[in-house]
Design a protein around this nucleic acid. Sequence first.
DNA 1: ATAATGACATGTT
DNA 2: TAACATGCCATTA
Length: 125
Amino acid sequence: MSVFKDQITRIVQSVPSGSVLSYGQVAAYTGLPRAARQVGLVLREMEEDVPWWRVVNNSGRVSITGNWRADKLLQSKLLCSEGVEVGSDFTFVIEKYRFRPTDEQLKEFQLESDYREKVMLKYQL
DNA sequence: ATAATGACATGTT
DNA sequence: TAACATGCCATTA
């Protein structure tokens, strides 16, 4: 298992029920802010105990495709069951549910302090 | 080594 | 708004 996958696992597992975060956000927390696409590729093969459905497109929509064990409808249902109001067009107001880690949580992602501040700025509303 | 492949993001039309 | 184009980069073939 690569470090990248390992980090993604930890990050996604730290997201509470009812919250969501974008692929780019996950990427940013791994220290590779431009690796959003890879996050999706990794999630595709992820373990069962990782709440993959809380990871969404930054524009506020469920964008999952080409996965044999999960599709947009399943993800939408899972999110709805957690209180995220997903419309029939698979969109929702992301800023209403976006996961905003505490300083403590961010530190657990082991990022350098100056980089950590940038990430904080980018994803606070 | 090299090249193709995307559950993306962002800026331009 | 929404569609399109371009940049990205860890994996895999």
